[in-house]
């Protein structure tokens, strides 16, 4: 059995000549909470749809739960072991909350009635209300119930907290962690809220223009990256070139901010070698890493 719940290799997908995914590589470890980040149009939703079998790749390979998504029979097996929350949170407008739960339940033999009852209570879902009468936030909660109660090994969530108020976001994030810890479910989710990814994810990938630009364990990334803030005595003292390892360099007058991914000590030495330069090492947040990588393009 592979250590990875999702393995994507050299995935390409284009729409009418526009390249959406450009040799995307991604590995999602089993049991992880994996934050999938990128600007609008970076290719996050396209990747998720490819995982579920809603789209077909132009080239490359996708394996989910060790199975090939391009094989129709294996794709059905994958879908029986995963849950998917769509970006727009749309469900059948002619069903009530109770009806959609009753409709979904029989497709999944491992459906947990106990978890269903708990979520109905925690999320305060109105059983008799028609789906169009629900707010987007309540629909998000309902979709999480439908995805989580099926005993899925993998949850693919496209912006699950979009439209939720802060309290509801907190509830949902807490439930995601609980699902991951208690059921061993792998959670692969996209979000524009970097703070919430930072809060619950243990692994992240950042994609830009259909390519993975950063991938790894969040803790490792935070250790790997460091920000050096250097203030020089005069403009003329600022070096034109920095040593290898400087991912990005921003200059504002006499101050230079460097995001370093390796060779930090050598960069520090370079800065300190300039007379009158004061150097400060600052911790890096996920937001720093994200912005530096997507701003460059």
């Amino acid at each position: 059995m592979s250590d990875f719940m999702i393995e994507i290799t050299a995935l390409r997908k284009s729409f009418k000549g526009n390249l959406a995914l450009d040799d995307l590589d991604l590995r999602v470890p089993r049991g992880s909470i994996f934050g999938f980040l990128g600007k609008n149009g970076a290719g996050k939703t396209t990747t998720m749809k490819l995982l579920v079998g809603l789209l077909r790749p132009d080239s490359g390979a996708i394996r989910v739960l060790g199975l090939d998504t391009s094989n129709p029979a294996e794709s059905i097996q994958i879908r029986s072991r995963m849950g998917f929350v769509t970006e727009d949170k749309e469900l059948y407008p002619y069903m009530t909350v109770e009806q959609i739960i009753r409709f979904t339940r029989p497709f999944f033999p491992k459906w947990s009635i106990e978890l269903e009852r708990r979520y109905l209570e925690v999320f305060e879902l109105p059983l008799k209300r028609k789906i169009p009468a629900l707010s987007k936030g309540t629909r998000s909660k309902l979709m999480l119930l439908l995805a989580a109660c099926r005993g899925a090994e993998l949850l693919i969530l496209d912006e699950p907290t979009e439209g939720l108020d802060p309290a509801a976001t907190e509830d949902l994030l807490r439930e995601l962690v609980t699902i991951c810890v208690t059921q061993g479910t792998t959670v692969f989710f996209s979000s524009h809220q970097l703070a919430e990814v930072d809060q619950i994810a243990d692994h992240v990938a950042i994609i830009d223009r259909g390519r993975t630009v950063v991938e790894g364990a969040l803790d490792d990334l935070k250790v790997r990256y460091e920000r050096l803030q250097v203030v020089f005595e005069s403009d003329s003292a600022v070096p034109v070139r920095w040593m290898d390892g400087a991912e990005s360099v921003r200059r504002e007058g006499r101050m230079v901010s460097i995001l370093a991914s390796r060779n930090v000590e050598a960069l520090l030495a370079q800065a300190r070698s300039i007379p009158g330069a004061s150097v400060e090492r600052l911790p890096v947040t996920l937001k720093d890493i994200f912005l530096e990588h997507v701003r460059r393009t």
Partner: peptide, 17 residues
């Protein structure tokens, strides 16, 4: 308008051919 396209994604994500 009827929100039917989005719900199609839900149908297609079910384990049914």
């Amino acid at each position: 308008v009827k929100g039917l396209h989005g719900s199609t994604l839900y149908t297609l994500s079910l384990p049914v051919s």
